[in-house]
Design a protein around this nucleic acid. Sequence first.
DNA 1: ACCTGAACACCGTTCAAGT
DNA 2: ACCTGAACACCGTTCAAGT
Lengths: 263, 263
Amino acid sequence: MGHRPLGLLNLSNVTPRHARIPDMTANLEAAPSAPPVRRKRNPRGSLNREVIVSEAFRLCADESLDELSMPKLAKRLGVGVTSLYWYFHTKEELLQAMLEQVAHEFLHALPDDDDLPWDEHLRRYFTAMRRIFLTNDVICDFLVMRTDVSIVNTGQFFIDRMDREVGVLLAAGFTPELATHAYQAMSVYTTGSVQKVRLSQLRGTPPEAKMFPIDDPGAMEQIAERYPDLHVTAHYWHASYSTEVDYQAGLDLLLSGLRAHLR
Amino acid sequence: MGHRPLGLLNLSNVTPRHARIPDMTANLEAAPSAPPVRRKRNPRGSLNREVIVSEAFRLCADESLDELSMPKLAKRLGVGVTSLYWYFHTKEELLQAMLEQVAHEFLHALPDDDDLPWDEHLRRYFTAMRRIFLTNDVICDFLVMRTDVSIVNTGQFFIDRMDREVGVLLAAGFTPELATHAYQAMSVYTTGSVQKVRLSQLRGTPPEAKMFPIDDPGAMEQIAERYPDLHVTAHYWHASYSTEVDYQAGLDLLLSGLRAHLR
DNA sequence: ACCTGAACACCGTTCAAGT
DNA sequence: ACCTGAACACCGTTCAAGT
């Protein structure tokens, strides 16, 4: 439920760890004259799993999933860090709880059934999936970028949706084997595209930026010499490797390959 | 040059941070009776960038890229942590140096030119690429898994190889636009497949494991009820989502889609 | 039953000081 | 020019102690 979606990560705000300015005020507060300020004890029922999870989402929205830490989260909630550990035994457990919400949000955002022919239906479905990931950083980071070990079930959580989509392919006349491979290929291709775009965002390069300096005739002349074939295609290469147009072209190839099988 | 390739990451060896046993010996060494053991100062020329980088690769091979830390690396080299910072101003700079070696290794492992027809050539090329990633965890983690911001140039480092491959497509008669999209689609599909397999490895699930309990008739009966269409295809779903067979099927679809364009 | 801070083993990095 | 440890601001987590 409702943590607000992030804008695209603005890298100009990211301060590398080695450039952070030490917090001088911390020392001042700890000076002998000032007695150690004891946080007033929070009332008994003030904390619970939902409050923690939703504040965690707010933190992710304000910063990013990578920036989520237990101390930061505790500070935002105005509680001691260790209080969190009463509700979640480890950070991993918290992430698990967040993942479940993210999965629901993702499922909910997928398009409803329609009466399009199988190929147009699949295009719509996977195009929507890509769009959801690219307009919602938290969903994207949880479901496609995260390389953590213990976030499990990512393959299982929308199994009934997969059932529907495979059903579309079977109804279109594909064999069970081909229907499966078709779905898998489009899914793998889609998440691959999302990963490329997100990586270029994280690098700070606009995904739609041209890969070659096509506006610099001098530079292009050099490229023409060293890379004659790339030079001919220079216009079609972008920083992310997989813009919306590129993505659609690849989807076309997959769908056209599938159509060939039906005949 | 020559850090040894890794076996597949064995997750049974990975100890989660919260389960680590505190190091009691550290306290004993710091006991008042024992004078602080001063490391004998290393001779002047004992350290250099190459030594550090190659030991870093050895650490990655023994543990993993995620486990690489400056203190660990310094300990293996028998130097103070801060000595490393004379040669690399940040950890990021060290990773950058490692990336360059990894990129060379990757390029070197790609197959040479051949005289195959364009479609068989591309299949061979991308299949080899996938294999390199999946048999070399360090290369994989650097070039496909890493979500770090500052590892740049990953799009640029094998641009002359891309030139050759695009050349093959142009020679086959594809338009510049289609040649580019074909290469991009296959590349995105390939790295997507690699990511899925690596993630399932990291989760500890054998990539070839079946996704559904096809050997348990009782469980399969329930699946047949809830997911009639998936049930029909249950045999073709694997934990990684993209086994070698699955991958080849998707590649077939892309190539067949491309062939349709030539006619 | 819940909330707390002190403490610990990590991490990346800075700095002033040795040789 | 190189190598050093002390120190700092982080991190996840444990533990014994409060209410």
